[in-house]
Amino acid sequence: MKTEKMTIVHHERIAKNIYQIRLAGALVAEMNEPGQFVHIKVTEQANPLLRRPLSLCDINKEAGECTIIYRAEGAGTTLLAKKRPGEMVDVLGPLGNGFPIEAAKTGERALLVGGGIGVPPLYELAKQLVKKGVSVTVVLGFQTKDVVFYEQKFAEFGETYVATVDGSYGTKGFVTNAIDDRAISFDVLYACGPKPMLKALEQKFPDKDAYLSLEERMGCGIGACFACVCRVPNSETAYKKVCSDGPVFKAGEVVL
């Protein structure tokens, strides 16, 4: 974990309000686990003040580059979206504990489920799983057709299904509807997305080996501020920090 001014080498809009940014820097050498994130300061000014936690989508060690996909929504990400190649951003990372690749054995099948802006970290995960000889099936959920991204990219790794809430693309409804539409068998489940989605998956597959990546508002991103805590089952005071104990937890480890 370090801070570095990384250089933007590529930046493009890939769907409505969804941007893909590629950063170059020495920090990439430390990036290993899919599901880890970086904490980005988009301006040297005091406003917006805080860093933005953004998950790693692709790690390219040979090129010394990493790719991040984010939604331009608030003050920070909107400002980030205006940055041009050649400009620098202040990056703290890599942070958190990612998806355990070792949970899926060679020859097994993993189901990867992503919701909205929770989709990106699954890309590096799919890449690493396939490299290891694990088969992947991917189910991606989005609100509408105009925010769908990376369907083709995932399709290179395995069967990929898309659901949209309004039915404008793929299965109408949620990722769980897309899963119900097909009898998908798998050994390990990996998921990232909004809490209701993770909860639905946890309830749907109570006996499966499942790893869930949580999203939460963060302060420091390193475990010091206690902003992003979640409860541990059967305890009044026990907790886990999403930033430093997670963001990936084994299903059942924390209360969703």
């Binding site: 003050a75 939460e216 508002r217 409860r231 005071t237």
Partner: peptide
């Protein structure tokens, strides 16, 4: 344990916790 989340919110040049 403290309060439920969200526990932080950004403000102009500041934050609420």
């Amino acid at each position: 344990f403290g309060n439920p989340t969200p526990r932080v919110a950004e403000t102009p040049s500041g934050m609420l916790n």
